[in-house]
Write a protein that binds this DNA or RNA. Sequence first.
RNA 1: UGCCGCAUAGCUCAGUCGGUAGAGCAGCUGACUGUUAAUCAGCGGGUCGUAGGUUCGAGUCCUACUGCGGCAGCCA
Length: 484
Amino acid sequence: MTLPAGTTTGKLATMDYRRRSIRDLLGSEPGGGAEAYGWVKTRRDSKEVSFVQLNDGSCFQDLQIVLEAGTVADDLLKKLSTGACVRFEGILVESPAAGQTVELKATALELLGEADPATYPLQKKGATMEFLREIAHLKVRGNTFGAVTRVRNRAAWAVHSFFQSRGFSWIHTPIITASDCEGAGAMFAVTTLLDHESPTQDEAESTFRLKSTDPGDDFFGKPAYLTVSGQLNVESYAMGLTNVYTFGPTFRAENSNTPRHLAEFWMIEPEMAFCDIEGDMNLAEEFVKEVISDVLDNCGPDLDFFNQRIEPELLTTLRHVVDSGFERMTYSHAVDLLMKSGENWEFPVSWGSDLQSEHERWLTEKKIGKPVILIDYPKDIKAFYMKQNPDGKTVRAMDVLVPRIGELIGGSQREDDLATLEARIDELGLPKAAYWWYLDLRRYGSAPHSGFGLGFERLIMYLTGMKNIRDVIPFPRTPGQAEF
RNA sequence: UGCCGCAUAGCUCAGUCGGUAGAGCAGCUGACUGUUAAUCAGCGGGUCGUAGGUUCGAGUCCUACUGCGGCAGCCA
């Protein structure tokens, strides 16, 4: 292998993932030779010495590289600009200054990839989230998105760990569905009927034509879509494996332009046989506490950053949720409290209407002061599959409300009685024939069962304090935006 | 999709009553004995989102469009 021009190097580089990461180096005792790979955050020069902040994403903290004057040529030193990729060799030494315990006193460096400072879009000073979204391919090199990405990774691990340690099986429900009965929102079509002309240079000039307008000619012989929920499928697996969950991508073609919606997002949906609404609430409470607790334990520096720069109440609310017993009350009781609150609501409260975000936040933040689980919602504002209560008016639905954002989880006990479920489907005018297999689950060996769903990105927003959902997923897909 | 707001240097923004464009940061040049988003001095940098309109004159006023953001709805 030929090294790039301008290189100074000593011994052979360790081009293997088993080398020490910056995280490893920062946790090492001083003394001994070391090498460090990463991207330059900043460089500070004085006459006798230069400092380079080097980050490889393995942790929030940068490794400080100390370059004494003369270690490398001036023209090479100048190429150590923000964004440049570099390998240093040196000695890991105790740092005489505050800010870090060890630092790398460099003896050699290899410039792996320059980043022209005149055009490199990231700078050492902060950029707005809006700007960073335009450079989604580079944004992960900054503090904020590195931290978001590590928290997201750890949270995903914690989700699996939570369920796996309790004997739940991860079910890979389909991404493509030909059921037109999911009913959770507008769907993206999946088709091979498009006849598009040879790609042109100008995307705007390319056009679509349909080879056929008959769904029977399409790949699946009928209309197919990207899934909007794995719940119906995973219920089938709960009726055989007992405790199961989904964790995968989900798609909604809604034209929603808000900081809380994505067209492509990840959803977590546990489903348990032999479990009623009480057991469902118990699982939800344990789940929220354990995932938060895991991230608090394992992403300390990242959360400290969010607490300092993004959301000052972050650590307080997260610790509070972990330490609190969740308050449980009925929807009807909550409506009573809201109507007697004396608050001047932007949206009026009445029994039978859905609670607005302002109502949910008042309950959990002001009235109760800790997470709240509401149950027994009016059946008309909830989905058809929820278990009906004997009162004929409410269903065994539950929503988990937490301080700072409101609803985090929505779930229910499912209707397991065939006749009741069929009647409800008829009542709502839904296409009963399409639900044939879902009804079979009640026809053969039906079991009481419950589950819930939560959007993974909303959980990440809660864990990080980030205000826009587009900033907690690597490449956000929203109406009119599918770049990268 | 509806309502509201914004669009000026690479980034973040200022620009008064309509009168020929400004700062900080970044960049470049130099200084500085260990810095922590280093500091100090100097230099370069603009089709004011696009297209029309009003006006002697438009960054500024009007219209449309595009993009972005916020709120709402839909929801996770």
